[in-house]
Nucleic acid binder design. Structure first.
Lengths: 155, 155
DNA sequence: ACATGGTAGACCTAAGAGGTCTATATTCAA
DNA sequence: TTGAATATAGACCTCTTAGGTCTACCATGT
């Protein structure tokens, strides 16, 4: 039997991740100790108003960012940008990296799981991806290492 | 300015791909020249009734499978299973492999595209994935090469 | 005290994933 | 020649999510 309607939980590198990475890179580009407000980040990075509040909440909860409530409040990185991997960012604002559902749910996704020869294909692909992303940091992105141009973080 | 609501077109290794791979592996496991009906594949592979018809349509249109209309009709592989890559299957039943929208849409997704330092990260990740998937064939899966067990293709 | 911030949460809309069904044309075989 | 078994083409349905917007509330610096 197939299972009823377990939700996708699949890989989705969409706006949330994009905005999160950009916000973090922007923070990384600030002088040490500087606190930046949500509105400021949204304006400089062309992120829709309010939207970032939900993302920052996740980043705070995940321990990647420190928040400062009250007037003159805002956000700053909770640790050095070099120690924040893109994989971590993805998993913080989205979910664990899972390419195919059976890799997470097993038999309840597909009854042939135990004898499936397709499974290991996606397992390898997933590991490939996760490993690469774990090796790239927000610091790398903010510094523009191996990339086309300088970052737009100083505006 | 951000663009209005272009649809996701992102990586999704869901049921369609799963069913397609299983159907193709099943066909690969048949004696040379044998034609198998949709209903047969659905039953043996535990795929919901009718659903496969849409998938097989794509596989036929993509030239991976040959269809035979009429009584005693059905499907058979259009070429040796070793020459059908998983990447090709994915792209035939789903869409081109694209991890993040800006890699496809460019400036119309994000105005910072030309100076973006995040972009190349996803570009590399995407290439990693695509290359790996291009190197795995339905033949590999049907033969169970490097995998846990024998395939369930002989039932 | 009050403007400026984050926090928490409700709410909305469009689109996609997965699934089901039917009408039609084609072909084999009795 | 007829009828059963096929693929083909397409409509249709439902549920969930991505992305976005807004408001009530609380904290804090000046």
């Amino acid at each position: 039997m197939r299972s009823k309607r377990e939700r996708s939980s699949l890989m989705n590198v969409g706006r949330r991740v994009d905005y999160a990475v950009r916000a973090l890179s922007y923070l990384a580009g600030q002088p040490e100790g500087r606190i930046v407000s949500r509105v400021d980040i949204e304006k400089k990075q062309d992120i829709p108003s309010y939207y970032l509040s939900k993302i920052m909440k996740d980043l705070v909860a995940g321990g990647l960012v420190q928040s400062h409530v009250g007037s003159k409040g805002g956000f700053s990185l909770a640790r050095p940008a070099e120690k924040i991997s893109v994989k971590e960012v993805y998993e913080t604002v989205e979910r664990p990296i899972v390419l195919m559902e059976c890799l997470q749910t097993g038999e309840s996704y597909c009854s042939f799981c135990s004898v499936c020869t397709q499974r290991s294909i996606w397992e390898v692909a997933q590991r490939l991806l996760a490993n690469y992303l774990a090796g790239v940091s927000i610091g790398d992105i903010a510094m523009g290492r191996g990339l086309t141009e300088q970052l737009s973080s100083h505006n």
